[in-house]
Design a protein around this nucleic acid. Structure first.
Lengths: 107, 107
DNA sequence: TCACTAGTTGGCTTATTTACCAAATAACAA
DNA sequence: TTGTTATTTGGTAAATAAGCCAACTAGTGA
């Protein structure tokens, strides 16, 4: 029972890590391959230190892993199965947008 | 480009909603069928008002939907594709726990 | 050696989230 | 009507997260 709660907390940590626009944006970018911090910084437009903290949070949750090569540090996805889930949630989001649009039309 | 950011935000909202132990616990319980608020309250042990707020947040993100029948309100999962993703993340969590255990053994 | 670039860490302020209590609502029974 | 049970809403205090600046580390090249 206690092990179950620990397990749920670890799962929640993953979701929480993905639950921030900048972090999800970076994770989404990594789907097409590893990225250095500078690329991710350019992508989000946030301060370098902010990006770095977001990345360490993602790493801590097990979503990404890092590798240093030369002067850069490259981050890559370590959570494989994201694609299916994102495809599914994006379907839902599209449905909702369409419904909202229909509501506006019918006012 | 702006539409993409909106889309990422909507996705992040779903992850954020799932990123709290109590909420994930309730969502996990709903995988086996709808539950009334009182059942979910007993499950988490939190205050009824706290549970209610968690549920409205989940509903707002599109993860669950609610239906009133008689004096109870029943919540059910409306995000289908959770199973595969949870199976995948749980695999990763198990791996990590095993690795941590191995590290302790090898000290 | 010094300077330069890439990235992390510490500290601080502000914003957001959480959780509880109390009050309101809604359905239903006496 | 009144009371009762199930749930939501408003308010507030405490905990947590975000974002920024400055300082620090590590690799690289002059």
């Amino acid at each position: 029972m206690d092990a179950y709660k620990q397990y749920i907390s670890a799962q929640a940590k993953i979701f929480k890590a993905l639950g921030h626009p900048s972090r999800l944006l970076m994770v989404d970018a990594m789907r097409s391959g590893e990225k250095c911090v500078c690329e991710l910084q350019a992508l989000t437009g946030a301060d370098m230190s902010t990006v770095s903290k977001h990345l360490s949070l993602l790493k801590d949750a097990g979503v990404v892993s890092a590798e240093k090569r030369g002067t850069n540090i490259y981050y890559r996805l370590s959570l494989c199965c994201l694609d299916n889930f994102l495809a599914c949630t994006s379907e839902m989001i599209q449905d909702r947008i369409l419904k909202q649009y229909a509501m506006i039309q019918n006012r």
